[in-house]
Amino acid sequence: METMGVQAIIREIIKTLTAEKRTIRRVFFTACGGSLAGIYPGMYLLDRESKTIDARLYNARELVLSPPMALDEETLVIACTLAGTTETLEALDFAKAHGAKTIGIFGQDYTYERSSVDYILRFKTIADITTPMIQTNVVVSLQLGFALLNEKEDYSYYDEAEQAYTLLETLAKEIRSYSQSRARKFAKQFAEADFLHVMASRASMGEAYAFVLCSLMEIQWINSSVLNSAEFFHGSFEVLDKKTPILQLIGLGEARLADERSTAFLQRMGENYFLLDVKELYIDILPPHVKEYFQHTAFDLALREFITQLAIERNHDKWARRYMWTLKY
């Protein structure tokens, strides 16, 4: 069903379940790769704000191979794929077989030919600079999260979320312009690096994962890892010396304290680090109570400029692949 908007879909699901004397107790977000990272913000929003919904994020293959016992008729499964990733489609089949309600967030040009999706929402890739932010999978996941909060719990800041949607194009324009010089500096600093850690916390972990997996490893063939700012002092800081390359994302919310602590240690003991603070990315133009949940979009816009400049500096084609699209695997 593709003619309904986000709010109408959530209302209908709740109405249907209420008639069956059930409700939405769990929301499982599932996908693979960049799509998995892209819907992280929706999961994080519900995890932070909902008192009645257990929100989780699963790789689609793992959801099928090692499913939680909680997957049942009171679960809403939200799956995302740009072009019909097999594992994601199988996860939708699996979820429907377990009685879950299902929503597919599908790429604009993908034709879904199975019967396991109750509702379909469309998105466009942010890799296309002409894509409006409101049409990205990141923001669609947030729209679903905010709608669930509003319909189930009368969310106090839903109007702020609605206002934020209208400001995203202004945010994108400012970030793309601002990030050019920062991206060139980043690219020159790490052009010769054969390894790069990316550190973040909580709301920014999805974007850190996306940048490591999709940008550094897939697009530039640079070995990389995701570090957690709060976990940094429980083992991983032992690799830090003056040469260790680290990109630190400094986010919003209470977890910013963890980012600031790890940043202070980088400044004290390291040298080859690069700091990117979401506060320098015009995030404060968004309403105060919801801007934390849009920081994935802000970082993503900036880091796409970073990876473009890094590819130029390294003379490594962004579309080159060793295995993806070329081998059967």
Rank of each mutant, 00 (worst) to 15 (best):
R268I: 01
V239Q: 11
G251D: 06
L257N: 11
W319C: 02
T166C: 06
C32I: 09
Y110I: 05
N228I: 13
T86Y: 15
D159P: 13
G84R: 09
R114N: 12
V290K: 12
R202H: 12
S116T: 08
L17Q: 01
E87V: 00
E305L: 12
N228V: 13
L45K: 01
T18L: 15
M324S: 11
L227M: 14
A97I: 04
Q295E: 11
V138R: 15
L144S: 04
D317S: 10
L142W: 05
I307K: 11
Y209C: 06
F29D: 01
T125L: 14
Y157H: 14
R176C: 09
E218W: 05
F123Y: 08
I103M: 03
G38Q: 04
Q248H: 07
E90Q: 15
D109M: 06
D159A: 14
S156A: 15
I129K: 15
E20F: 05
V138P: 11
A127Y: 08
E238G: 04
D109C: 05
R61W: 10
L281N: 10
S156R: 13
T23V: 07
S35C: 05
E305I: 08
A320C: 02
L46R: 13
A264M: 05
R202V: 13
E49A: 15
C80P: 04
A187N: 03
L275F: 10
A187Y: 09
Y323P: 06
V138S: 12
A91F: 11
L327E: 14
S35K: 06
G33M: 02
M205D: 01
V226Q: 09
Y178P: 00
L247G: 00
D259V: 09
I53E: 08
L276F: 09
F211S: 02
Y209W: 13
E280L: 10
I24P: 00
L303H: 02
C32K: 08
I250M: 02
A258E: 15
H296R: 12
D47P: 07
Y165N: 06
K152C: 12
L144T: 02
E2F: 08
L216E: 01
K318Q: 04
R256D: 01
N272D: 08
D72S: 02
D72M: 00
I222L: 03
D72E: 02
E313W: 03
E73I: 00
V6H: 05
F28N: 00
N137F: 14
L121D: 03
R322M: 06
D93L: 08
A147L: 04
A37R: 04
D54Y: 13
K188C: 00
L121N: 04
D47H: 15
R182P: 00
I13G: 03
F106P: 03
Y329P: 00
I307Y: 04
F233E: 03
Y119R: 07
E62S: 10
L276D: 04
L303F: 02
E231G: 03
K188Y: 10
T244C: 10
R176S: 06
A37E: 03
T244F: 14
Q189V: 01
D317Y: 11
F186D: 07
G34A: 10
A255Y: 12
S66H: 13
L76F: 04
A147K: 10
E62P: 10
L63V: 08
M1P: 11
A100E: 01
F306R: 06
E313I: 01
K96Q: 10
E313T: 06
L71V: 08
M4N: 09
H234G: 02
V140L: 12
T297W: 15
R11G: 07
F265E: 09
V290E: 02
L89P: 03
T16D: 10
Y293M: 08
L142H: 08
E49S: 14
